[in-house]
Simulated assay, not measured.
Amino acid sequence: MSPGNRAARLYAIDDGGDGRSLVSFASLSLELPLLRAARHIWQGFRSQLAADPRLLIPTHAQLHAVDLARARGPHLHVSRSTDRSVHKRNTREVILRGLHTIADMPSGRVRVVYRRTERYGQDRPDLFAVLLAEIDAELAEAGTRGIVFVDGNGTERALADALRRLPDGGRRIAGGIRFRRARDHDLLQAADMIAYSAHQAVAKRDAGIEMAHWFGAALPHAEGPSAR
């Protein structure tokens, strides 16, 4: 396929970090013609979780990585095991299973950027602008266009305005940033798992040390996590 004929891509983006000194953004991108096939794979994963007697997570329930890691939330707080530690291990492994599911999506690409900071409020939108610039350059090289979805309700003007930092001429990201609630968007929930596992890979803190290798193991072809 020649660069000028490559399919347009959708980008689902979520943020990560600790809210203080480490900020990150994770992107999952897919070719639009293969979007239905990718979502079919994700729906199969959701059906497996609903049928797994250790979990019984309904297909309509939002998968939020922080809740899974801590075994909390309306569909997780009731233990499916008499051993609390076993139940927590089972819910944490949903994240790893999700990452492997993402790896199976046709045309899927994963990119993560992060920054250590003492100016979290300023560096967060700055880092997002860096990610958008990388995405735009990727699209330009491929000779195609992309649309960007971000978890949120649209009130974060600093993120919405980040696109304006790109040169108007030849910009490859179509339209503005599209904000959607992750609970209503399966691919944003997938991006959340990427962001969370990438954060664990960078932070390597005691509470999540057992998950620190999951990102690299499940997504060996990912771009990043890259310091920016």
Results as ranks from 00 to 15, higher is better:
His77Ile: 05
Asp192Ile: 06
Arg70Val: 02
Glu93Gly: 01
Ser107Glu: 02
Arg164His: 02
Phe25Lys: 04
Asp192Ala: 09
Asp67Ala: 11
Ala174Gly: 08
Leu163Phe: 01
Ile147Val: 10
Gly44Ser: 13
Arg70Ala: 11
Leu28His: 07
Ala69Leu: 08
Ala12Phe: 08
Ala65Trp: 06
Arg205Ser: 14
Leu10Ile: 06
Gln200Thr: 15
Phe179Leu: 03
His221Asp: 14
Arg116His: 15
Ala8Cys: 09
Gln122Thr: 08
Ala137Phe: 06
Pro33Glu: 00
Leu30Met: 05
Arg115Met: 06
Asn153Trp: 07
Arg46His: 10
Ala222Thr: 08
Leu159Ile: 03
Gly108His: 12
Gln200Lys: 15
Leu132Ile: 02
Ala222Gln: 05
Ala140Asp: 08
Glu141Gln: 12
Asp104Lys: 11
Pro33Val: 04
Ala158Ser: 12
Arg6Met: 15
Ala217Trp: 15
Gly121Arg: 07
Ser29Met: 08
Trp214Phe: 14
Gly216Gln: 06
Leu188His: 09
Arg171His: 11
Arg181Ala: 15
Val148Pro: 02
Arg46Glu: 09
Ala71Trp: 04
Ile95Trp: 01
Glu141Trp: 10
Met211Tyr: 00
His64Ile: 02
Arg157Asn: 02
Gly146Cys: 05
Leu10Tyr: 06
Ile57Ser: 00
Ser81Tyr: 02
Asp18Ala: 01
Ile95Gln: 02
Ala61Lys: 01
Pro58Glu: 08
Ala37Cys: 07
Thr91Asp: 00
Arg70Glu: 09
Asp206Thr: 14
Arg36Ala: 15
Ala103Asn: 13
Ala7Phe: 10
Glu210Gly: 13
Gly208Tyr: 14
Leu127Gly: 01
Leu76Thr: 00
Arg92Glu: 11
Arg39Leu: 15
Leu28Asn: 05
Thr144Pro: 04
Tyr196Arg: 13
Arg54Met: 14
Gly216Thr: 11
Ala129Tyr: 03
Arg124Trp: 04
Arg92Asn: 09
Val86Met: 12
Tyr11Glu: 01
Gly146Asp: 00
Ser47Pro: 07
Gln122Pro: 02
Arg181Ile: 13
Asp15His: 13
Leu187His: 05
Leu219Ser: 08
Arg36Ser: 13
Pro225Leu: 05
Ala212Asn: 08
Arg119Gly: 07
Ser29Trp: 00
Val130Met: 02
His64Gln: 11
Ala207Arg: 14
Thr101Met: 06
Glu138Gln: 10
Gln122Ala: 10
Leu96Asp: 11
Glu138Ile: 05
Val202Gln: 10
Pro220Met: 03
Arg171Glu: 10
Val202Trp: 10
Glu31Gly: 00
Asp161Gln: 10
Ala103Gln: 12
Leu163Pro: 03
Arg157Tyr: 03
Leu127Asn: 03
Ser81Leu: 04
Ser2Ile: 15
Leu22Gln: 00
Phe128His: 02
Ala65Ser: 13
Arg183Asp: 14
Pro225His: 11
Ala7Leu: 10
Gly4Glu: 15
Glu93Ser: 04
Arg181Lys: 14
Arg97Tyr: 05
Ala217Asn: 15
Leu28Asp: 02
Leu131Met: 06
Ile13Val: 15
Leu127Lys: 03
Arg157Met: 05
